[in-house]
Design a protein around this nucleic acid. Sequence first.
DNA 1: AATAAATGTTTGTCTAAGCAAACTTTATTG
DNA 2: CAATAAAGTTTGCTTAGACAAACATTTATT
Lengths: 151, 151
Amino acid sequence: MYFVLKLKSLPPKPQKAVKRSAHQRTAVTESIEDYLECISTLVQRDGFVSVSAVADSLKLIRPSVSLMIKRLDDLGYLKREPYRGFALTAKGREIAQAIEVRHLLLSALFTQLGLDPVKYYNDIEGIEHHISDATLKKLQDLVRHLKKHPL
Amino acid sequence: MYFVLKLKSLPPKPQKAVKRSAHQRTAVTESIEDYLECISTLVQRDGFVSVSAVADSLKLIRPSVSLMIKRLDDLGYLKREPYRGFALTAKGREIAQAIEVRHLLLSALFTQLGLDPVKYYNDIEGIEHHISDATLKKLQDLVRHLKKHPL
DNA sequence: AATAAATGTTTGTCTAAGCAAACTTTATTG
DNA sequence: CAATAAAGTTTGCTTAGACAAACATTTATT
């Protein structure tokens, strides 16, 4: 007579290292956009930028920024020299500029809606990360349109 | 003669347990908003909702959803009965509705801008989480205005 | 009713991103 | 120029949120 044992599991297969696609590895997160925008803005304002300045501006602490700067270097968005400073690469500037364009546009729109873009900075910051090129175009049309036909 | 030893560190102080504010504990993250919106929408569409349906809809896997459903229960946004189902609480519906209002409004706006809200679902999904009440009001004005003065 | 399929859950692991403490390097200043 | 301050970095820890494998429960099928 037999008893059939119901096996609960098969022999463990070799752990498969999850391969990350190039796209994922260099994914531009909101956080990365924030950093790049911030850095670019500070450079425009002060002519240079430091870990501390970024930390102050983003309301983070220096260690956090330091680590992210290193990551941004790895990702090729900036070049850094430990303890000496860092600066955006072309790749980094490209992203910074794209996000700045969106920010400026939203500021203009908010103004036309009668909202102080400074007071509603958080809205703008949040929204700017989620605007595709197509939407950007249409919003530009809208801002132009509202100049002729204000609210 | 003395040598002054420069101590590298003070005796380790007792680890201070980081206390989390009530606000933080119940913070409505984007993810939470997504889940609540999704659940609400599915209930409206199908009359009921399941872990699988949410997983399909949000393009996540069931275990991820299962865990989040548990968290949402803990946070009081829904009531669940393991293996049996779950449903939004008043608190959960409130958030779901707020986010749905924003979604609908943005859909209307996108339509008026000549953008298919389905095609630009990602933009809308991203943006809807970042609209304050004041901005919401103004966008409502804008949509009304555009009906009279289309692009 | 027994088995299979579907659905739901638990556990372990991972990544992004943050903070705090400790440490290092550079800059400032008496 | 030595001591201190300021700036930057490293390390260790935490949380949110996701995936995968294994396990459990419920439902469907034969």
